[in-house]
Amino acid sequence: MMDASLLPPGRRWWLPQGPAVQRAFFGGWTVAVFAFLYLPIALLVVYSFNDSKLNLYWTGFTTKWYGMLFGNEVLLRAFQNSLIVATATTALSVVIGTSAAWLLYRYRFPAQQTLGLLIFIPMVMPEVLMGVSLLVLFVSLGIPLGYTTLIIAHTTFCFPFVLVGVQARLQGIDPSLEEAAMDLGATPLKAFWLVIIPYLLPAIVAGALMSFTLSFDEYIVTIFTSGADSQTLPLKVYGMVRVGLNPQLNALSTMFIAATAVLVIASQVFTRKKTV
């Protein structure tokens, strides 16, 4: 217990102060924001069990949408395509974005500033412009529309998100980190791999999460750069709006979220076991 005379004037010693209050306040705020984030998701899950197709009123509990989903090859195929494209896009974006951020930070390239600005263009450019111009590019290069073109297109607007996140983490990095590694005999490449990457990991993970989300849900660019065999989930979903969104979509989303959540929690449990 601190001596009251040492406290700054005006501070009430009987109220909990400092880190505890801060933590409680932020914790409560976080809970509220999570409630906001998950409110429509909860609704979505509830509707996946709703008997009515139009999702406006609750007419009865049913699991028939889940059953129908398993027979819906078109939808499942679209979902699979989305996963494939999003995963590949994320992998490529992480590689390009991280290495680019590091190289720009570490080394002085001519026209550095211009490079930095160029990277922002895919973020700024409206999706329809990017979609149309990439379509024209692919057609004139003779590349058939399919997975390849789709992944290229998605990566182009996803990697800046990784890059910006990693750049932010690089600001204020302790320069002695790399120096120490090299003093111990590591080449710049090895130092990068063994020391810098672990430091950057939270930014890389954040960038990967953002890339995956952006790619998974991308509609407009996909319209212009996908082929018949690479129809993704957003393309199917947007088409359904006119006849009413099929509750099978709710079922699909519910299962996907549930599967991901289970995976994440399971991986946390296993990491805990490792540290024991």
């Binding site: 998950y38 429509p40 989300t213 998974f216 849900d217 957003p234 979903v237 709006v241 989303s253 996907f256």
Partner: peptide, 8 residues
């Protein structure tokens, strides 16, 4: 939550 479709 954002791995559900934007429209739904």
């Amino acid at each position: 939550p954002f791995w559900t479709s934007f429209l739904i």
